[in-house]
Design a protein around this nucleic acid. Structure first.
Lengths: 243, 243
DNA sequence: CGGTATATTGACCGTATTCAATCTCGGTGG
DNA sequence: CCACCGAGATTGAATACGGTCAATATACCG
């Protein structure tokens, strides 16, 4: 559902090597050169984040684009009264910060849920590269358009689907994203609280918990805390098929 | 809520002149030249649509970008079982078709609700212009980023707001869009059925109807069919302020 | 060890959906 | 010209889904 990827990552023992499926790889690796994570262009900075640490906050001027190299982040929109809504979750290869291009300031908060490592490329640098190579500009347009398409898809989910459909759909979505990056398609870690998941899906955390318990009771999935194992994918999919 | 506009339109008697607030004006009017609607660049085609006519359909290969010159359109995502969800409504100056850049095929249907006139610029032509003038490419990125931001905002609405908040918010949103184009901020035509409005807001048409009746009874608005007049803007806004 | 954040589960309630009846308005054709 | 028809809209009543409130359990961390 998030930024399209071209090929699955080959993940090293550290679990960090994501360059081959990174949304920004064309900015990092000039075509013709091999993808050598060690030979990082000088313009790309690595940044580490502790759990709970902010990558950027709403209102801050945008200075960079970010790609997730390792870890798990959320972006969320602060609401009145201290509440906030989760807009997206980001895993390795995903891109952050593209909603700020138009206004020049970030429209959302980006927070690490994990120990994260992100690659950062400054906007200035990206602009310069796109001016020199118009193919890069076209690639950036494609990335942006993909984010529009993703957002529209999620609007459909929020506008038309029941609680159980949303939860089932999200599990399948996450599974697909992990498997697209070379991980098991049937077993993964949610990396988020029920509350965050509910906020993302437009549900309360109690409802999320109930749905997960329901799916577990019906032996469609197995849950242990935040670890999920899909036991009956077809059952989950048939939930979504129902209009 | 939709594509940002720079300045209000000065609308001629025909109600069609929208160039001064058109999202594509930088592609039409090379900077330095005045905005003369008569001196239309050869690359830009005008296209007229009858009510109900499709501008494009999901799955069709994308060949152009469109800007609305007059009339009212919706874009919607077809769902299983003949149902569909309205993703956006478009009025003059708005841009259509940007979600197809990544995949090369349209992800949604675009349908005229009105007699419409749109300006069409082919993708090829747009690409060529962006390669020649990188400032145009940056502008296009800004337009795309704006659409991302709009979609995220709408996700918040769908994920967190009650029925009455959604309807009130939508009325204010529409009013703002019309007034931004030089029309009355307090009196306008919905141009859509209750059903379409409900689909857009993630509600049933009965609920939409009830909310409109409620607002009318409380003298916050006056409704006559699809004509709306805002009588107590503060009341509507205070609905939204409540977390 | 206690304290806090997270999660599960139950009972109750309220909002929005569903189903249904009625009304209005336009368009068509007898 | 008017009767008829169908789409859209309004309104009511019953229902169900998800939210709210509350109690308890579990895990993590200082």
């Amino acid at each position: 559902m998030n930024a399209a990827i071209a090929q699955p990552a080959i993940c090293s023992a550290t679990g960090q090597v994501a360059c081959s499926c990174c949304a920004l790889r064309r900015f990092c690796a000039p075509p013709g050169l091999g993808l050598d994570p060690a030979a990082l262009p000088a313009e790309v900075r690595r940044r580490r984040l502790r759990p709970g640490e902010y990558l950027y906050s709403r209102g801050a001027p945008q200075s960079s684009l970010y790609a997730v190299r390792a870890g798990f982040l959320k972006s969320c929109a602060p609401l009145s009264g201290g509440r906030s809504q989760v807009l997206a979750f980001h895993i390795m290869g995903d891109l952050l910060g593209l909603d700020a291009l138009a206004s020049g300031t970030h429209r959302s908060d980006a927070v690490a849920l994990n120990a994260c490592e992100v690659c950062e490329i400054t906007l200035d640098q990206a602009e310069r590269m796109m001016q020199e190579r118009t193919a890069l500009a076209a690639h950036m347009r494609s990335l942006l358009s993909g984010q529009v398409a993703d957002a529209l898809e999620r609007m459909v989910a929020l506008g038309t689907m029941s609680a159980r459909q949303r939860v089932a759909g999200y599990i399948l979505d996450l599974a697909g994203r992990w498997s697209g990056r070379g991980y098991s398609p049937n077993e993964f870690d949610l990396c988020m609280t029920r509350k965050e998941m509910g906020s993302y899906l437009g549900l309360t955390f109690e409802t999320v918990s109930r749905m997960l318990s329901l799916f577990d009771a019906r032996e469609w999935i197995a849950i242990d805390g935040r670890k999920v194992r899909i036991r009956d994918r077809a059952a989950l999919q048939s939930l979504l098929a129902a209009a």
